[in-house]
Amino acid sequence: MNIEKTTHGTPLSSSLPKEKATRKKQLWRKIVQQKTLILMSFPFLIWLFIFKYVPLWGWTMAFQNYRPGLPFSEQEWIGWKQFQFLFQDESFLRVLRNTLAMSVINLVLGFVTAITLAILFNELRNGKFKRIVQTISYMPHFLSWVVAASIISYALSLENGIVNIVLQKLHIIDEPVLWLGVGKYFWGIIGASEVWKNLGWNTIIYLAAISMIDPEQYEAAEIDGASRLQRIFYITLPSLKPTIIILLIMNLGNILETGFEPQYLLGNPMNLDYSENLDIFVLKYGISMGNFSLATAAGIFKTVVSFIFLFSANHIAKRLGQARLF
């Protein structure tokens, strides 16, 4: 970060020593002048450094055969071995598959349902009804995953679960199904749970974008005889495009962040093969088994992949001449 450049807005290339000296003086004067502002932010910069930047140092563990208690200088360096081990480990590959599958399902489902609902909200004419439905739809977002998982596992339970009751009444299934006990249902359950929890909340950003649309556009289209659906497809959806692209880029950066809580809380020994994701893997190896190095390596892998996805998506959007994140 170049302070002189930012304060003066001029390039540094003019290297007259006199000018440099006065600039330094000016900077110093400013620092003295703004000492209160510096004082107000300094403690939090220290905090930031300790809690957010110091842990990055821990990444070195991934390249060591880390043993707790030994000083840093005595740790054994082993290069990329942990990473090699990861990619030969069958359970890691399965975890990776689960993570990616659930991510993609959540991403697609999340986008499609939120955009659809935002558009449907927008088509409600009765203001009061609209407000009430919106408020109700935000509710699950505020519940913790523990509460949500408690509700979901009860709704899916064998004996009194509402899902089994309704499906039986509709004659879709004959016998109640132990939904959380069958691995292959797990991804779908997570996808549905995510939608249930965050659907309403995710519409907020699209509704904000819709509210920016000039109402004259709709009026003109109506006079031209455009139907409801035509107005949705030719006015509302296109004007949501920039928002959709930016959110897509941001979400692609999180492609390996399936979240940890729903999988952990709804997972059980019966659906383990489908429920374990990267974060659970890190937790299992790191905290429960004490293999800090391997767990850190898996964590680094996640961060690096996220970065690659984030930048590629941003780059592609830039190339296509679309809105982008940075």
């Binding site: 110091v54 842990p55 821990g58 990444w59 563990m61 905290i287 964590g299 961060t303």
Partner: peptide, 10 residues
């Protein structure tokens, strides 16, 4: 971010 394990150790 540093991730789970480094944060835990911190």
């Amino acid at each position: 971010n540093g991730g789970l394990i480094p944060t835990y150790l911190l």
